[in-house]
């Protein structure tokens, strides 16, 4: 059955605390952190972008399992922050992992769910027999305007999944999506920062679509929340996934391992992929995983996944750093250093 052959995540080393951002804007950091459930977020180094994160995540995936790069027939990179408006991130990833030239590739954009859309595309190509392996990556150096609520959460990170049929470490039993035209968050061409509808991004957007896809998935599989060992929901903050999990009937311990937002922030297209990587870091054969992403605009992709014995025999999980290891390996920045890292300082040209 089609599934995840191997996986890898990448999180930059730098962090900034919500308190430090709040201090600059005269806000109450404790109040904001407690409200969002996000206490610090990752920040890219000055020579990191969504492409370098995608490459390093893909290399971590290939370090765990001996996959012949020549057998990779497709690469899809989902991101809101591709370094070029026109020139694909995915071909540079392909070149950097040795998968070129006999492969198809494209960059995806669907706000925060472009990475899971890539997984679905790879599943289709594998199931139809068009390719042996496909690589789906969600990667972002997320944008948030100075002083905007997004600045407290917009983070950097990503994860890569090799999708195939041969001895997957986790079988993807089914996937489905729920999509509508809902303008809760957008970024116009050429604009540096996105805009959003504030509270409008909650009920008619995130909650409607995540619940829509989640219910659809459980109806199709004939399952209930208690049938799953782990659940991962898109995490623009820690509050939304906790609330939607409770609304659907999942317990806090089911979402804990995949909820990275409190220490990572929102890595946009990387958010659910990093959360799923965190679960795969500890999952045992037979564990069942429920995944629902969310991308503004809006849509949700749901997945029902079962971990197989191959997770113990076919990959070396220690060959690449776990999400927990990367979350703990950190260097704090003050706001001035953060502004320099993110290119927010106006320089003389």
């Amino acid at each position: 059955m089609v599934g995840i052959i191997t996986y890898g995540a990448y999180i930059p080393q730098f962090r900034i605390k919500a308190d430090e951002i709040a201090k600059v804007w005269g806000a109450n950091g404790t109040e904001i952190s407690n409200g969002l459930g996000v206490f610090e977020k990752s920040v890219p180094d000055m020579d990191e972008d969504s492409l370098t994160i995608a490459v390093n995540a893909a290399r971590n995936a290939l370090a765990r399992r001996d996959v012949n790069p020549a057998d990779i027939g497709a690469i899809y990179v989902g991101s809101e922050s591709h370094p070029y408006a026109v020139k694909p991130t995915s071909v540079t990833v392909g070149e950097a992992i040795g998968a070129t030239p006999v492969m198809t590739a494209a960059d995806y954009e669907f706000a925060c769910k472009a990475g899971t859309a890539g997984i679905q595309t790879c599943m289709g190509l594998v199931k139809s027999g068009m390719i042996k392996y496909g690589v789906a990556i969600g990667s972002d150096v997320a944008q948030g305007a100075p002083s905007d609520a997004l600045e407290y959460t917009a983070a950097a990170g990503g994860a890569a999944f090799v999708i195939g049929n041969d001895d997957p470490i986790a079988e993807i039993n089914d996937t489905c999506s729920y999509s509508t035209d809902t303008p809760d968050f957008w970024r116009r061409e050429g604009q540096a920062y996105p805009r959003h509808g504030g509270r409008f991004s909650g009920e008619p957007a995130y909650f409607k679509h995540v619940q829509g896809a989640a219910h659809l998935m459980m109806d199709r599989m004939g399952t209930k929340p208690a049938d799953y060992d782990y659940a991962i929901f898109h995490q623009p903050n820690a509050k939304f996934p906790r609330n939607v999990a409770a609304m659907l009937g999942f317990k806090p311990e089911q979402i804990k391992q995949g909820l990275c937002a409190p220490r990572l922030g929102n890595t946009y297209s990387g958010a659910v992929p990093v959360g799923l990587s965190s679960v795969l870091d500890v999952a045992k054969p037979g564990d069942r995983i429920f995944v629902t992403s969310y991308g503004s605009g809006s849509g949700s992709d749901a997945f029902d996944i079962t971990v197989t014995d191959a997770i113990l025999t076919k990959i070396d999980r220690k060959a690449a750093p776990s999400v927990e290891t990367m979350l703990n390996d950190k260097i704090y920045l003050d706001y001035a250093q953060y502004a320099k890292h993110k290119g927010k300082i106006v320089m003389q040209k």
């Binding site: 020579d47 990191e48 492409l51 490459v55």
Partner: peptide, 20 residues
């Protein structure tokens, strides 16, 4: 080794990636 951005040719030129 790791994969990083090496340089960029201004705001509109090519971005050069490589090994650090």
């Amino acid at each position: 080794s790791t994969f990083r951005k090496i340089s960029a040719d201004g705001d509109s030129g090519i971005i050069v990636y490589g090994t650090k």
